[in-house]
Amino acid sequence: KDKDLLKGLDQEQANEVIAVLQMHNIEANKIDSGKLGYSITVAEPDFTAAVYWIK
C-alpha cells in the first residue's frame, strides 16, 4: 500500500522530489490532482527513508 509523502506541489517540485528519491532507489509515484497540485506517494516500507531524503 502506498502512503502520501507530499501534497500540493507544482510540477517542478514534484519532479525534483521524484528525482531525489530515485537516486536513493526509492520508487515514488507522482499523481496529478488538478487544481490541488501534484502528490507524491511511496510504498509504506519506503516511507521513513523517503522522509529522510527529502529533508
Rank of each mutant, 00 (worst) to 15 (best):
E27I: 13
N15A: 09
G37N: 04
F47H: 05
A14M: 04
N29L: 11
A50F: 03
E27A: 14
I31V: 11
E12D: 12
E12M: 10
L36K: 11
A28V: 05
V20P: 00
A28Y: 10
Y38M: 04
Y52N: 07
Y38W: 15
K35H: 13
Q11S: 12
E27S: 14
D46G: 03
E44W: 10
E27G: 09
E44M: 07
D46N: 08
A43W: 06
K30N: 03
N15C: 11
D10P: 05
Y52W: 08
V17Q: 01
T41M: 08
M23P: 01
I26V: 04
A43Q: 10
K3T: 07
A50C: 05
Q22R: 13
D10S: 15
L36W: 12
V17W: 13
W53M: 03
G37C: 08
A49V: 07
V20N: 05
A49R: 10
T48S: 12
Q22A: 14
T41R: 10
K35I: 13
T41H: 06
I18R: 02
Y52G: 07
K55E: 15
Q13I: 06
I18P: 00
V17N: 01
I40D: 00
Q13S: 10
T48C: 14
G8K: 03
D32K: 09
S39E: 06
L21T: 01
K7S: 13
L36E: 13
D32I: 06
A43E: 05
I26L: 04
L6R: 02
A28R: 01
N25T: 04
K35V: 13
L21M: 03
V42G: 01
D32H: 10
W53R: 01
E44L: 10
E16L: 14
D32E: 08
A28L: 04
A14I: 04
A19G: 07
D10K: 09
K7I: 13
G8L: 04
G8I: 02
V42C: 04
D10C: 11
N29H: 13
Y38A: 01
T48G: 09
E27Q: 14
I31Q: 05
E44D: 09
D10R: 10
W53D: 02
F47Y: 12
W53Q: 02
G8R: 04
I40V: 10
K3F: 08
V17T: 04
I18Q: 04
D46I: 05
I54G: 00
G8F: 09
I18M: 10
D2K: 11
N29P: 03
S33K: 15
K30F: 08
K35R: 10
E27H: 14
A19I: 08
V20C: 11
I40L: 03
N15F: 08
A43N: 06
K55G: 14
A50Y: 05
A14V: 05
W53Y: 08
D46V: 05
L36F: 12
K1N: 10
L9R: 01
K1Q: 10
S33G: 15
E16Q: 13
A28G: 06
Q22V: 08
I54C: 06
D46M: 09
I26N: 00
K55R: 08
L21F: 02
W53G: 00
D10Q: 08
S33P: 03
A19V: 06
V51A: 07
K1E: 08
N25C: 10
P45T: 14
L21E: 00
E27T: 13
M23R: 12
N15H: 07
L21W: 02
A19D: 04
K3W: 09
L5S: 02
V42A: 01
T48Q: 14
D4I: 15
A49P: 03
Q11C: 13
L5R: 00
D2Q: 15
L9V: 03
A19K: 14
N29Y: 11
K55D: 12
A28C: 09
Q11K: 11
T41D: 02
E12T: 10
L6G: 02
E44N: 05
L5Y: 02
G37A: 05
L9M: 05
